[in-house]
Design a protein around this nucleic acid. Structure first.
Length: 493
RNA sequence: GCGCCGGUAGUCUAGAGGUAGGAUGCCGGCCUCCCAAGCCGGUGGCGCGGGUUCGAGUCCCGCCCGGCGCACCA
């Protein structure tokens, strides 16, 4: 079968009202996207599925809908201000870029004043040149991956606030409230879905890398003394997937297919809870339609670990047009964040359980919603007889059922309206009377509508209609009185 | 952000100094009892700004957007 290209997917997303670049009448705006009538339903269904699976249908995870702009100190405590803001100098000859402070410190010069004026003065006085080609260096330029804004009406340095670049900190700053809500027991988790903002240098590959995107994330707090006591582990131990540990990567070995249970026994994971969350993540991704063959678990090398992480696994999806790419990360953040916030805020961020003071450790599964949906669309995209059929799992389909009069005239239209009115309160339904019947089926297939109800001549005689199935194009005939029940059966409701 | 390449109706594409053409979609009509059918009619376009030229999708400059490579990816 021909490989799907990103261009084909982008084209479908635009022409069918799913996702498209924002502000196109002004030439577009890189890294920002709008979701159309179909996309907005799809996104909502995916997020609902996630929320049900990880929050509502669990005993131990609590939801949060946190602020996008938080106290600026949050980002000092988290380490983002230090690690997201740099003064960079650029070589005027070869255009290589360097952190100013690193170049200066490499010369054995101690910096006491980190202001850009002073950094530049040191570079000029010591005649520091490009280590690559010896070229002259530019003045230091501020390089900030966080979007800044000003809170209050005065635009001063003191008024700078940041658009959150991750949702995690919203959970950490509310740890006390949630630990009480969880009745002072471990483990428990806090879940949040929301927009985050990162001022990427080069947004690319459609919605794969954007500047404004959505994260679905859980911070799961465990007792470090009980890190290998996960009562749910039997639910994931047989999940089997390709796993690529850092050792395998260093030895240039291929990923190895193994179960989560086997991998845990072999010591692949930092602890049992970490293994559990990798397994649960895979189960949900598989549930929403991503096949296990297209998923793999890759451990981060030491060099790519985030400053807060003891061990991270990426769940990667094999995009036909991008190769294996991260759609979710599962990090062991240990007690890094709670300790940092305790230090910066002066609050006591620990729990006392049975007289013992415990700073919980954190396992953090973190999904990129756009990336998951890109994988979902990729997996669902299929071609049948030269037509696109989007085989989205029924529960996620933006519309469930289309109603079509076979011919565009009375009394077919009247009867179709009746059926539509009968269905619309129970299903995401629409009525389409425009164009030939084949054209209407084709349009519905492109946005993944699972069922089509057709009103034909026989309907007018015996009050039966046909149900057409998106994936097979087969039709069955049912009484209109049994339509709702039959559709529910197929939808597994 | 750097380098190379590109940008023509909603989508896909022809045109490379001289009247912007096609396909498809969409809308209306005729026809049609089931898979983008047929016929007729309609809708809609050179990314933005400046320059060169009698004349610019076409050549030049800047910007924007996209693809690829590098860098970045906490």
């Amino acid at each position: 079968m021909k490989k799907l290209t990103l261009d084909e997917l982008v084209s479908l997303c635009k022409r069918r009202g799913i996702i498209f670049l924002t502000s196109e009448i002004y030439g577009g705006y890189a890294g920002f996207f709008d979701w159309g009538p179909v996309g907005v339903e799809l996104r909502k269904n995916v997020v609902d599925s996630w929320w049900n699976y990880f929050v509502r249908f669990r005993e131990d995870v609590y939801g949060l809908f946190g602020a996008i702009i938080m106290h600026p100190k949050v980002w000092e405590a988290s380490g983002h201000v230090d690690r997201f803001i740099d003064w960079l100098v650029e070589c005027k000859k070869c255009h290589a870029r360097y952190k100013a402070e690193e170049l200066i410190e490499e010369q054995g010069i101690e910096i006491t004043d980190y202001s850009p004026q002073n950094l530049e003065r040191i570079i000029r006085e010591h005649n520091i040149r490009c280590p690559n080609c010896g070229g002259e260096l530019s003045e230091p330029k501020k390089f900030n991956l966080m979007f800044e804004t000003y809170v209050g009406s005065v635009k001063s340095e003191e008024a700078i606030a940041y658009m959150r670049p991750e949702t995690a900190q919203g959970m950490f700053i509310n740890f006390k409230i949630y630990s009480v809500y969880a009745r002072n027991q471990l483990p428990f988790g806090i879940a949040q879905v929301g927009k985050v903002f990162r001022n990427e240098i080069a947004p690319r590959n459609f919605i794969f890398r954007c500047r404004e995107f959505e994260i679905a994330e859980i911070e799961y707090f465990i007792n470090p003394a009980e890190a290998n006591e996960c009562p749910y582990f039997s639910e994931v131990k047989n999940v089997t997937v390709k796993i690529w540990t850092k050792e395998m990567q260093k030895k240039e070995q291929e990923p190895k297919e193994m179960s989560i249970g086997e991998a845990y026994d072999e010591g692949v994971f930092s602890n049992m809870w970490h293994a559990y969350w990798v397994g649960e993540s895979l189960k949900w991704l598989n549930k929403i339609g991503l096949s296990m063959e297209n998923l793999r678990v890759r451990e981060h090398l030491e060099t790519e670990l985030a400053h807060y992480s003891a061990q991270t696994f990426d769940i990667e999806y094999n995009f036909p047009f991008l190769g294996w790419k991260e759609i979710e990360g599962i990090a062991n953040r240990t007690d890094y964040d709670l300790k940092r916030h305790a230090k910066f805020s002066g609050e006591k961020l620990y729990m006392v359980i049975n007289g013992e003071k415990i700073i919980p450790h954190v396992i953090e599964p973190s999904w990129g919603v756009e990336r998951v949906i890109l994988a979902l669309l990729t997996e669902a995209y299929s071609v049948k007889e030269n037509r696109v059929v989007l085989k989205i799992p029924y529960e996620l389909a933006p519309y469930k059922v289309g109603v079509y009069p076979l011919l565009k005239r009375e009394p077919f239209i009247k009867k179709a309206r009746e059926i539509f009115m009968q269905l619309k309160n129970d299903f995401e339904a629409f009525l389409d009377i425009s164009g030939s019947i084949g054209k209407r089926y084709a349009r519905a297939d492109e946005i993944g509508v699972p069922f089509g109800i057709t009103i034909d001549h026989q309907t007018l005689e015996d009050d039966t209609v046909t149900i057409r199935f998106r994936d097979t194009w087969e039709q069955i005939r049912v009484k209109t009185s049994e339509l709702k029940e039959t559709l529910n059966k197929y939808l597994n409701k």
